[in-house]
Structure formats: C-alpha cells, structure tokens
Design a protein around this nucleic acid. Structure first.
Length: 421
RNA sequence: GGCAGAUUGCCCGAGCGGCCAAUGGGAGCGGACUGUAAAUCCGUCGCGAAAGCUACAGUGGUUCGAACCCACUAUCUGCCA
C-alpha cells in the first residue's frame, strides 16, 4: 500500500494533522470521513477539493465515509463566517441533502473491501432529546475551550454569535463519535478552517470512548491575484451542470492563472509528480499554449461531468475561440457549442431585432443601453464580424445553418441566438 | 430605557435647498497590448433611441423647487443607565 501521507505531502495538501496520525496510518488501513453540509443546492469547488482528497485515500485502499450534514446544515457552521447566517427552512435543507448525496456518489467506488459508505448525521441527531444531548454529550465540552476556537472567538470580538451556531462544533464532534462507533472511523479530514471542529471531535471520542482518533486538514486553495478561488464574475462555480454548465466549468479551469495552475493540478487532478513537472516546464517555455491549463480543465471536467460533456465543452471552446471561420463549422459542432453558451430563442416574424436587443435576450448585457454602448465601444461581434452600428439589425440570412447566430461581447463572452420558425 | 450621531448608486465615500443621475476611489465592463493570461494605458459604468422617467433607508410635510430643511417609522453606531 502506498503511503497516503507522502502522496498528500508532495501535493502540498497537508495543512495540519494530529501528531498520532502517521502512527495510525502505519497500521495500514483506516476508515475516514469528511462532512458536506447542505448550505446550497449543489456542491462547489471547496467541496471538490475534499472529494478528491477522499478519493486519493480510497485509491490507496482506505475506506471513505461521505457524510451529508442533514443536521449540521440546519444549524450553520460559524467557521469562516463573520456574521450569523440566516437559517434555511428544514424542507429546503432536506431537499438539498438529497441532491448533494446524489452528487457525491459518482466520485466514489461502492464496491470492494473498501467500498465507500454514505451517511447522514440527521439520522442520529433528529430525534435526540435535549436531556440526552446535554447530559451525554454536552457534559464533555468545556465552554472555556469552545470559546477558544477560532470560529467562535472571531465572532465574540465581532458581530456576535447565537447559541445555535455556538453549538455547531458539538454536533460535528458527535458525528465523529457516531461514525467511530458505527464504522470504526478514526480519521476526519476537511479544509483548514475545519481544524477547530475536527479537534473538538477527536477530544470527544477520546473522552467518551478512550480512543485515539485523528484529524487532517488541507490548505485552503488561494489564488495569486488575491481573489477568492471558486468564483467567477457570474458567481460561484458549482458542480451541478444545471447551475454551472460544463462549458462554463471547463472555461473556469482553462482561465486559471499561470501562477496558480500547478497548485490546482496538484489539488484537483491525479496526475503524477513527473507529469506535473513536464507541464510546469511547458508553461515556462510556451506559456501561450497553456498546456497545463488544458490538462487541468480536461481532467477536472472529466472527473465531474464525464467524457461526453468534456468533449462537448472542448468542441465548443475550439469552435468559439478557434481561428477557423465560423461559417465553416458543421451544424452538429455548432449546435453543441451554442447549447453550452448562454442562449435565447427568437422568431423573426418579419421584424428585424437589433443586435443590442439580442445581447439582452441572451443576457450578455444588462440593458439595451448597455448593449448599444458595448457596440459603440467596438466590443460586439455577430458571427465573428464586428458590429459597428449601434442600431444594427439581423435578418434570417445571418443565422448559420439557418439556426444559430453567434454573439460575442468582448474577447471571450459568447452567447447564442437560435431562430425558431 | 435615556442622550447623541448615522443611513447616498455593486462596495467605500463626497455632496447639506436650484448649477445633482449626484465629485472621487474600488469592483465591473469595453478597447489597445496579449496567451481566452498578468501588468499598464485609454474609455465606460441607473433606465430610455430621444423627450423623459426612476433613484440618495421608508412615509408624510415645508417650499416655486429637496439627496440636502421638518416630523414620524425602521435599522445601525457611540455615550449614559
């Protein structure tokens, strides 16, 4: 069995771990868990980093438990938040739980001796009565120590914290205890912001079960330009293809900064140290080819959305950004490319819509005035031909293959208009 | 609970009766330059083709005229209980 710690080590994926962890791993097999709270209808990049980390453990023979936080999602983790968050309704959270469970499944192997286990902390918390909670669990927590946790102390000095969120670390600790009892789980992993919650859990298991369990955190992914990783102008990049299209997802990785691409490859792909060294060399020698970004985008999009969607996203990118003449693209390629871009339908019915109206229709600009402005600034093209007249209109002849009109705003924002008869 | 102050566009922040759709900065967007990059420079940045319309926490008022004055409401921040 390969050593998971050295694997994570060369990838710079270890922020902190409990001192006893190497000893535990030396025994061979561990069962580990990571929690995913339903704070949104879909998982996002931060979650993906943990999923991939768990996957690395599973590939080396360890047993992963993917825990969906049906209970903790109802409470709200104060970690990394500078203000109390609004509670989501129970119905909403339970709906998200189901969606997130389905999203997690494809990443893991559910067969073999180290098959992945899916769990949900709602199971052991929803009917626990308050006296049991206070006597059996709460008794093991020192408020003094809870106040010392970064996630709590930051809030005490700032916007304050409710009892609900203050209790979050207790619930997460209870999860570790339950998973230890039910599945012999002896390791919890998470982002470095979870360190406080994880150690609260190892403390609880030690007190209640007199057992040594461990924690490991991965560094938060940061970007060289200081902006938040996992966000674009249009918001969070989600794993759900309904929320972030595979095309947009692919583009997100393709656009990675040279300075960040190695870190991202180490964190999100399974490429070997040798392959990454080769890509690093490629970036240094021929940065404009962006080989590393292409490898990154290919691997991660395939991991999340599969081969087919990745091929489509690539074809779309090649079609839109390629040097080739758009009119020479075959109908099928164009069709799949345009479906991936923001698009809208229009029926001509004898009238000729203006280009700026069409820009608004596929949400490339916020208003007609902004569209006209964009044209005046020389930033708009139709079928890769620059539009110079603010009042330009289109006719049926402009639609490629009688169906699609390719709108471009700026260098890399595309939209499609499909003609309906 | 009492007193004082604050609330301006995506964010910060000027304006304190007409010259205000509102200075300046940031973010965003477009162009040049590029590699679907970074940095830099230039332009732009409520809606509307325009007339004009809607906006300066909310509601009402004073005034020929209010982001600016008054009253009340809401929220926030100080000081005193």
């Amino acid at each position: 069995m390969n050593d998971i710690l050295s694997e994570l080590g060369w990838r710079n994926l270890v922020a902190q771990h409990t001192p006893e962890l190497p000893e535990e791993l030396a025994k061979g097999h561990v069962t580990l868990y990571c929690g995913f709270d339903p704070t949104a209808p879909s998982l996002h990049m931060g979650n993906l980093a943990q999923i991939v980390t768990m996957s690395r453990f599973q590939q080396l023979g360890h047993t992963p438990i993917a825990l969906v936080g049906g209970a903790t999602g109802l409470i709200g983790d104060p970690s990394g938040k500078n203000a109390e968050r609004t509670l989501n309704t129970t119905d909403t959270v339970l709906e998200w739980v189901e969606g997130i469970r389905k999203q997690l499944e494809p990443f893991f192997d559910f067969s073999g001796s180290n098959a992945c286990i899916m769990s949900n902390n709602y199971i052991w918390t929803h009917d626990m009565d308050v006296l049991t909670y206070l006597r059996d669990i709460g008794k093991h927590f020192s408020v003094n120590r809870m106040l010392d946790k970064e996630s709590v102390s930051a809030r005490l000095n700032g916007a304050g914290i409710s009892y609900t969120e203050f209790s979050y670390q207790i619930l997460q600790s209870l999860d570790f205890l339950e998973l230890y009892r039910r599945h012999g789980c002896t390791l919890q992993i998470g982002g470095s912001d979870q360190w406080g919650n994880i150690t609260a859990g190892t403390d609880l298991v030690r007190r209640v079960e007199s057992a040594q369990v461990n924690g490991l955190t991965t560094p938060l992914v940061t970007k060289a330009d200081g902006t938040k990783f996992g966000k674009t102008e249009s918001g969070t990049v989600w794993l759900d293809p309904e929320l972030t299209s595979p095309y947009a997802f692919y583009q997100f990785w393709i656009n990675a900064d040279d300075r960040d691409v190695q870190t991202l490859l180490r964190t999100f792909t399974f490429r070997t140290q040798e392959e990454l060294a080769a890509l690093e060399l490629a970036t240094a020698e021929k940065p404009q080819a962006r080989e590393a970004q292409r490898a990154l985008a290919h691997d991660v999009t395939t991991l999340v959305h599969g081969d087919h969607a990745t091929a489509q996203a690539k074809a779309a990118a090649a079609a839109l950004f390629g040097q080739g003449e758009l009119r020479e693209l075959d109908a099928t390629t164009l069709d799949s490319a345009m479906r991936e871009a923001p698009n809208a339908e229009v029926s001509l019915n004898g009238n000729a819509p203006t280009v700026s109206e069409l820009l608004v229709a596929c949400e490339l600009v916020a208003s007609n005035g902004a569209g006209r402005r964009a044209i005046a600034e020389g930033g708009v093209s139709v079928n890769n031909v620059k539009v110079t007249d603010e009042n330009a209109t289109v006719s049926a002849d402009d639609f490629l293959h009688g169906k699609w009109l390719v709108l471009r705003r700026g260098k890399r924002t595309f939209g499609g208009i499909s003609l309906i008869k």
